[in-house]
Amino acid sequence: QKEELKEKAKEAVKRGNKDKARELLKRAGISEEEAKKIIKKIE
């Protein structure tokens, strides 16, 4: 489940939808700070 949400978040970032990505990562139980780092890494 968590990995699936991370994959979806990756796709969202690639489409330029960072808010959606952050939302998905939060749903995966990832903190706001972690989510920001992950999104930065994907960009």
Rank of each mutant, 00 (worst) to 15 (best):
Val13Ile: 12
Lys41Cys: 14
Glu32Ala: 09
Lys26His: 06
Lys8Trp: 10
Lys18Arg: 10
Asp19His: 08
Gln1Glu: 12
Lys6Asp: 03
Lys37Gln: 13
Arg27Phe: 05
Lys37Phe: 09
Leu24Asp: 03
Arg22Pro: 00
Arg27Ala: 10
Glu43Gln: 08
Lys10Met: 11
Gly16Trp: 03
Gln1Arg: 12
Lys6Ser: 06
Glu3Trp: 10
Lys40Val: 09
Ile39Leu: 08
Glu3Thr: 07
Ala28Asn: 01
Lys2Ile: 15
Asn17Phe: 13
Leu5Pro: 02
Glu33Ala: 10
Arg22Gln: 08
Leu24Met: 06
Glu32His: 05
Ala9Phe: 05
Ile30His: 06
Lys40Asn: 12
Ile30Trp: 12
Glu34His: 05
Lys14Ala: 09
Ile42Pro: 01
Ile39Phe: 05
Gly16Arg: 04
Lys18Ile: 15
Val13Pro: 01
Leu24Glu: 00
Lys40Pro: 01
Glu4Gln: 10
Glu3Asp: 09
Glu34Tyr: 05
Gly16Ile: 02
Ala9Glu: 01
Lys18Leu: 15
Ser31Lys: 04
Gln1Met: 13
Lys20His: 11
Lys6Leu: 15
Ile39Thr: 01
Ile38Glu: 03
Ile30Gly: 00
Glu3Asn: 09
Arg22Thr: 08
Ile39Asn: 00
Glu33Phe: 06
Lys26Pro: 03
Lys2Met: 15
Glu7Val: 07
Val13Ser: 02
Lys36Ile: 14
Glu33Met: 07
Glu34Thr: 05
Lys37Gly: 08
Leu24Val: 01
Glu11Gln: 10
Ala21Pro: 00
Gly29Leu: 01
Glu3Lys: 08
Ala12Phe: 12
Lys10Phe: 11
Lys40Leu: 14
Lys36Glu: 15
Glu43Cys: 10
Glu23His: 06
Ala9Leu: 09
Ile38Ala: 02
Ala35Thr: 05
Gly29Val: 00
Gly29Pro: 00
Glu3Gln: 09
Glu4Asp: 11
Lys40Met: 14
Arg15Ala: 14
Lys41Ser: 13
Leu25Arg: 02
Lys6Met: 15
Lys37Ser: 11
Ala28Val: 02
Leu24Phe: 08
Lys36Arg: 12
Lys2Gly: 08
Glu3Phe: 07
Lys36Thr: 14
Ile30Glu: 03
Arg22Leu: 15
Gly29Cys: 05
Ala21Phe: 05
Ala12Glu: 12
Ala35Cys: 04
Lys41Met: 14
Glu4Ile: 13
Ala21Asp: 00
Ser31Glu: 06
Glu4Cys: 15
Glu34Leu: 06
Leu25Ala: 03
Lys14Leu: 15
Ala35Trp: 04
Leu5Glu: 03
Glu43Asp: 05
Ala12Asn: 03
Ile42Phe: 14
Glu43Thr: 06
Lys36Pro: 02
Lys37His: 10
Lys40Ala: 15
Arg27Lys: 09
Glu43Gly: 05
Leu24Gly: 00
Lys20Asn: 05
Arg27His: 06
Lys10Glu: 08
Glu7Leu: 11
Ala12Arg: 02
Lys36Met: 15
Ile30Lys: 02
Ile30Phe: 15
Lys36His: 13
Glu43Phe: 09
Arg15Glu: 12
Ala21Val: 03
Lys6Ile: 15
Lys37Glu: 14
Ile42Gln: 04
Ala28Glu: 00
Lys18Cys: 14
Leu25Met: 03
Ile30Asn: 02
Glu33Ser: 09
Arg27Cys: 09
Ser31Ala: 06
Ala12Leu: 15
Lys37Asn: 11
Arg22Phe: 15
Lys40Phe: 14
Glu32Asn: 07
Glu33Asp: 09
Lys2His: 11
Lys37Asp: 12
Asp19Val: 09
Lys6His: 12
Lys8Leu: 14
Glu23Met: 09
Asn17Gln: 12
Leu25Asn: 01
Ile42Gly: 03
Glu43His: 05
Glu33Trp: 07
Lys10Val: 12
Lys14Gly: 05
Glu23Gly: 04
Ala9Ser: 02
Ala35Lys: 01
Lys20Met: 12
Gly16Asp: 02
Leu25Ile: 00
Ile38Tyr: 11
Arg22Ile: 15
Glu43Tyr: 10
Asp19Pro: 06
Lys8Ser: 06
Lys40Trp: 15
Lys18Trp: 14
Lys2Trp: 15
Ala21Leu: 05
Lys6Gln: 10
Glu11Thr: 06
Ala28Thr: 03
Arg27Ile: 07
Lys2Arg: 12
Arg15Thr: 09
Leu25Gln: 00
Arg22Lys: 10
Ser31Thr: 09
Glu43Pro: 03
Leu24Asn: 00
Glu32Gly: 06
Gln1Phe: 14
Lys26Ser: 08
Asn17Trp: 12
Ala35Leu: 06
Glu23Asp: 08
Asn17Pro: 01
Ile42Leu: 12
Lys14His: 10
Glu3Arg: 08
Glu3Cys: 10
Asn17Cys: 14
Lys6Thr: 11
Lys14Gln: 10
Arg27Trp: 06
Arg15Ser: 12
Ile38Gly: 00
Glu11His: 07
Gln1Ile: 13
Asn17Lys: 07
Gln1Val: 12
Glu32Trp: 08
Arg27Glu: 12
Lys10Tyr: 13
Gly29Arg: 02
Leu5Thr: 03
Glu34Cys: 11
Arg15Lys: 10
Asp19Trp: 11
Glu34Gly: 04
Glu32Leu: 08
Ala28Ile: 04
Arg27Asp: 08
Gln1Tyr: 14
Glu43Lys: 05
Val13Met: 11
Glu4Trp: 15
Glu7Phe: 09
Glu32Phe: 07
Asp19Ser: 09
Lys14Thr: 06
Lys18Asp: 04
Ser31Gly: 08
Ile42Val: 08
Lys20Asp: 09
Ala28Pro: 00
Gly29Phe: 01
Ile39Pro: 00
Asn17Ile: 04
Glu11Asp: 08
Arg27Val: 04
Glu32Tyr: 07
Asp19Ile: 10
Ala35Val: 10
Gln1Trp: 15
Leu25Thr: 00
Arg27Tyr: 04
Gly16Met: 05
Ala21Ile: 04
Glu7Tyr: 09
Arg15Phe: 07
Asp19Arg: 12
Glu3His: 09
Ala12Val: 02
Glu4Ala: 12
Lys40Ser: 13
Glu7Ala: 11
Lys18Val: 14
Glu43Ser: 07
Lys2Thr: 12
Gly29Lys: 01
Ala35Ile: 15
Lys37Thr: 09
Lys10Ile: 14
Lys40His: 14
Glu3Ser: 07
Gln1Asp: 13
Lys8Thr: 04
Ile30Gln: 02
Ala12Gln: 09
Lys14Asp: 03
Val13Phe: 09
Glu43Asn: 05
Leu25Gly: 01
Leu25Trp: 00
Lys26Phe: 08
Glu23Asn: 05
Asp19Asn: 10
Lys14Val: 08
Ile30Leu: 13
Lys2Cys: 14
Arg15Leu: 12
Lys40Tyr: 15
Glu34Met: 08
Gly29Asn: 02
Leu5Ile: 06
Lys2Asn: 11
Ala28Trp: 05
Glu32Asp: 13
Ala9Trp: 06
Lys37Ile: 13
Asn17Leu: 12
Ile39Met: 06
Leu5Trp: 10
Glu7Trp: 10
Gly16Leu: 04
Glu43Met: 11
Ile30Cys: 14
Lys2Gln: 12
Ile38Val: 04
Val13Glu: 01
Ile42Arg: 02
Lys14Tyr: 12
Glu11Met: 10
Ala12His: 09
Lys41Phe: 12
Ile30Pro: 00
Glu11Val: 07
Leu25Pro: 03
Lys20Gly: 07
Lys36Cys: 12
Lys37Cys: 13
Arg22Ala: 10
Lys41His: 10
Arg27Gly: 04
Leu5Phe: 07
Val13Arg: 03
Lys8Asp: 05
Arg27Pro: 00
Lys41Asp: 14
Ile39Ser: 01
Lys8Gly: 04
Leu5Asp: 03
Lys40Gln: 14
Lys20Thr: 08
Glu33Cys: 08
Ala21Gln: 01
Ile38Gln: 02
Lys26Ile: 14
Ala35Asn: 00
Lys26Thr: 09
Arg22Ser: 06
Lys2Ser: 11
Gly16Cys: 09
Glu7Thr: 07
Lys6Trp: 15
Lys20Ser: 07
Ser31Gln: 05
Lys20Ala: 13
Arg27Gln: 13
Arg15Trp: 07
Lys41Asn: 11
Ile38Asn: 01
Ala35Pro: 00
Ile42Tyr: 13
Arg15Gln: 13
Leu5Ser: 03
Lys26Cys: 11
Gly29Gln: 01
Lys41Ala: 14
Ile39Lys: 01
Gln1Ala: 12
Gly16Thr: 02
Glu7Asn: 10
Arg22Val: 13
Lys6Asn: 05
Val13Trp: 13
Ala28Met: 06
Arg27Ser: 08
Ile30Thr: 02
Glu11Arg: 08
Lys20Leu: 15
Lys41Thr: 11
Arg22Glu: 12
Ala21Asn: 00
Ile42Asp: 02
Lys10Leu: 10
Lys36Phe: 11
Lys2Pro: 09
Arg22Tyr: 15
Glu7Gln: 11
Ala28Gly: 04
Ser31Pro: 08
Asn17Asp: 15
Lys8Ala: 13
Arg27Leu: 13
Lys14Asn: 07
Arg22Cys: 14
Ala21Glu: 01
Lys36Leu: 15
Lys8Arg: 13
Glu43Ile: 11
Leu24Lys: 00
Glu23Thr: 05
Lys18His: 12
Ala28Leu: 08
Ile42Glu: 04
Lys41Leu: 13
Ala28Gln: 02
Ala35Gly: 03
Lys40Ile: 11
Glu33Asn: 06
Glu33Val: 07
Lys8Glu: 10
Lys8Phe: 07
Ala9Lys: 00
Val13Cys: 06
Lys40Glu: 15
Lys26Ala: 13
Ile39Glu: 01
Ile30Met: 11
Glu32Val: 07
Ile38Thr: 02
Lys20Val: 12
Lys2Ala: 12
